[in-house]
Design a protein around this nucleic acid. Structure first.
Lengths: 187, 187
DNA sequence: CTAAATCTTCAGAATGTTTTGAAAGTTCAG
DNA sequence: CTGAACTTTCAAAACATTCTGAAGATTTAG
């Protein structure tokens, strides 16, 4: 069924972004809600969101709370209005940085730490050629995850400098290139 | 509880990679299984995997089948052995390319297509200033997803050229930089 | 061909996640 | 204050995903 009304078009876009957000490990509802707010422009009340997206009051409440925790939606106060209104953050880079900072970075660090501990155990226990080969392979995995961390750090650093438009990506390209060149061999 | 035996260390590493793989939207078991094969070096039989990871025969079968579909595990035939043995692909870049190619790329294309359709509807319906602003914002989202696609294509292209070690990353840095510079403004 | 070994499949169980709906909490106008 | 409007919370329901275990299919040795 092709969308024809404005509302259907809105849902089509919201669903597409919902899929992206789900792909990144969040609830679909977060992406859909952000998109509706983003497209609408003006702030919307919780009840509006619930109606547009067919969500219960409870679901809307939890969703906007989480979106605020991630800094991608703000509560705005509208004079003379008793209800809370919400509007979307519109700076994509800001949003992505935040997520990379708090999620990807955390995972990368935790993974590197665990691989490191595992390698330490294998090293300590020694063993024959097979055991040494195992330590070596774990080392490769460790190198790889260290590199992933470097890419993430480069990205975050490029954000801090804050260029306009595509500048961030340009800076990232340069920094990753430099970091990779500096770190040297093995991957 | 700190790991002390070789087996515990293996599980610690397998679990760490399992988390990464889950973060990328696959089943944890895929990451764990690949890691055990990778660390072990020599091919293992399904029953070995089941014992090491405490999985039922059914789960092992489904898991190695899926890993083979993704090209990250191979079935090897061992002369004189009746059972199937499995070994891990060891080229990380090869594995990641495959996933990016089949999953990220697919999603990026599908999202861009849907956003495009949504924008077409809004454009067709016309409307006042608010409606025009909505079309414009949807355009920004569309630009952004086009850019994401470009980054993905650059990555895949850099892989095809195939440099050693960190060369891929260097090439990616250069290509993304070039692509971003070429595409121009707005992000 | 037969029987043992092995692998695959899949219905149902177990587990994990998200949403609902109602109760409790908060805020504010009157 | 009090009560209406609104929001938050959370237990249970709905839903989704993953795993188990056993039946059936397949392979191979004899």
């Amino acid at each position: 069924m092709e969308p024809t009304t404005e509302h259907e078009a809105e849902l089509l876009a919201a669903d597409a972004i919902g899929d992206v957000i789900e792909h990144w490990g969040f609830r679909k509802a977060l992406g859909r809600t952000w998109t509706v707010l983003y497209l609408h422009g003006d702030a919307l009340a919780a009840a509006d969101l619930g109606e547009r997206l067919q969500m219960s009051a409870g679901a809307v409440s939890m969703t906007v709370t989480e979106l605020q925790r991630w800094g991608v939606v703000r509560k705005v106060w509208i004079p003379g209005e008793r209800r809370d209104f919400f509007e979307a953050e519109t700076d994509f880079w800001k949003m992505i940085s935040k997520v990379v900072q708090e999620r990807e970075r955390f995972l990368a660090v935790s993974v590197r730490e665990r691989l490191g501990r595992a390698q330490a155990v294998l090293k300590r226990r020694g063993g024959g050629a097979a055991a040494r080969a195992r330590v070596e392979r774990l080392g490769r995995l460790l190198n790889f995850s260290t590199m992933a961390e470097t890419v993430i750090e480069s990205f975050l650093a490029s954000r801090r400098v804050d260029f306009g438009d595509f500048g961030n990506l340009l800076a990232l390209g340069r920094q990753v290139t430099a970091a990779a060149a500096g770190k040297g061999r093995k991957g």
